[in-house]
């Protein structure tokens, strides 16, 4: 026990590139990505500060300030973080600043707490490196909402097996001349067929399936609009049960595959319960 009000002296101030510091930072990044359900995954850019405190009875607490940068993978996208492309500054990237505490015990890192603030790069900084690059737009802007609805309508018009509903608008950019709107949004397939949807609210989302879409709406000079939509749909497929020794009955119930909204591609990532296969579904210009 220590007297109240007496701060615990730090054990040491390690290098920010110390291997343990990096492992603690990576554990914190994983924690952050697992605990926000909107927007994109972040990846570690830099460790700003590191301090280590002793923890009783055992262990050490790493108190870190870390800089994160946005990737192009949505947090619901099962793609491993290592395979996610970092969002380039020319795309008006978002950064995150986090204060985290990570406990190290028995060579295992466990995040105790994390507090993060995210903010887009300044428009001036984007302009410096790319004068004509589109800047981020508010997600609730009427032009953005219209562009997403038009892109989703175009995608659903392709008559996939299922009707897709909008789950989240995750990104939007206006071109400098305001003549086109670029959007990224998340969709979810439903139990409705595209051709007989009267009330979308009555369609129920299928579990463990999401479409990650990009759409561009361009206003034509003579009136009218061009819409382009591209979606990557991840479909959950049941995992193959591990072979059981003779005489031992599997505790798993029968695998009942839900009909995927789109045919599943080859598995690329395996988790404890499901394997996920991506399928690129491209919608040409409409």
């Amino acid at each position: 026990a220590r007297s109240p009000g007496v701060p615990v002296a730090p054990v040491r101030d390690p290098d920010c590139d110390d291997l343990d510091v990096e492992q603690a930072a990576l554990a914190a990044v994983q924690y952050v990505n697992n605990n926000h359900k909107h927007g994109y995954k972040y990846t570690l850019n830099q460790v700003d500060k590191a301090r280590v405190y002793q923890r009783r009875p055992t262990g050490e607490v790493y108190v870190l300030e870390i800089d994160l940068v946005e990737t192009c993978c949505h947090v619901l996208d099962p793609t491993p973080l290592e395979n996610c492309t970092v969002r380039q500054l020319t795309e008006h990237a978002v950064e995150g600043d986090c204060d985290v505490s990570v406990l190290k015990v028995d060579n295992q890192f466990m995040v105790l707490n994390a507090k993060c603030e995210s903010s887009p790069d300044s428009a001036e900084d984007v302009r410096k490196i790319c004068p004509n690059c589109p800047l981020l737009a508010p997600l609730n802007d009427t032009k953005v909402v219209h562009a997403v609805e038009a892109a989703l309508t175009a995608f659903n018009a392709q008559k996939h097996n299922n009707y897709f509903k909008l789950q989240e608008i995750s990104r939007a950019q206006f071109s400098p001349l305001q003549s086109s709107v670029y959007t990224e949004f998340v969709t979810v397939p439903t139990d409705c067929k595209p051709i007989d949807v009267i009330d979308p609210a009555a369609c129920n989302p299928l579990p463990n399936q999401h479409g990650f879409c990009k759409g561009t709406l361009t206003e034509k000079v003579g009136g009218g609009e061009d819409v382009v939509a591209t979606c990557t749909v991840f479909v959950a497929v049941p995992a193959v049960p591990a072979p059981q020794p003779d005489g031992i009955e599997s505790s798993l119930g029968p695998a009942v595959p839900a009909e995927p909204a789109v045919p599943a591609g080859p598995p690329v990532a395996a988790g404890p319960a499901v394997a996920l296969g991506p399928l690129l579904v491209d919608a040409p210009a409409v």
Binding site: C16, D17, V21, E22, L44, N45, V47, D67
Partner: peptide, 27 residues
Amino acid sequence: PVAPGPGPGPAAPAIPLCPGRIRHFKI
């Protein structure tokens, strides 16, 4: 006789290397 010169003196205190390396780009 030549008086011994000053020794190397105490080692400079180690300076923690922070912030660490930038993995992607400077923000």
